[in-house]
């Protein structure tokens, strides 16, 4: 092989870094938006739109903080998949988990978060 491969650790770092950065930027952006009352309109969770609907990123952010306390790996998976837009295959490659495990974990994370968003804990 003519080129050296980047070590798995470094790649994982970069992935997690970029996904987290994405999370920060988006959440900051949402906060900024929220302060602009004129433009802000909150979309209720039950409003179904074809092609997916929008979440309140601020609620998601507080749910993620809770999830981190429960299972940090699961929280990171959400960052990678939801904020980083990575596929199951990509996540499996950087986390070293099998694709089946990533898939199972993502489904669990998704169910947990959906529940958490429906029943927010008062801060």
């Amino acid at each position: 092989m003519q080129v050296e491969r980047i070590e798995g650790d470094n790649r994982a770092h970069l992935i997690a870094l970029a996904s987290r950065l994405m999370r920060n930027i988006l959440v900051d952006h949402a906060r900024l938006k929220a302060t602009d009352k004129r433009k802000h309109h909150k979309v209720e969770l039950t409003t179904q739109v074809e092609g997916g609907q929008r979440l309140d990123l601020k609620s998601l952010e507080s749910a993620l903080i809770r999830l981190k306390a429960i299972d940090e790996g699961l929280m990171e998976l959400v960052e990678m998949r939801y904020f980083g837009g990575m596929t199951v295959e990509d996540i499996a490659e950087v986390t070293g988990l099998s694709e089946a495990t990533v898939k199972r974990r993502w489904l669990a994370a998704r169910a947990w978060l959906t529940d958490a968003l429906m029943h927010p804990v008062d801060q």
Binding site: G52, L55, L57, R110, A111, W112, T114, D115, M118, H119
Partner: peptide, 20 residues
């Protein structure tokens, strides 16, 4: 509660960018 929520799920891969 998680199973119930799972029927309503709403988080898509890379979906966060749509919310911007």
């Amino acid at each position: 509660a998680m199973l119930q929520a799972d029927t309503l799920h709403n988080l898509r891969t890379g979906g966060a960018t749509d919310t911007v």
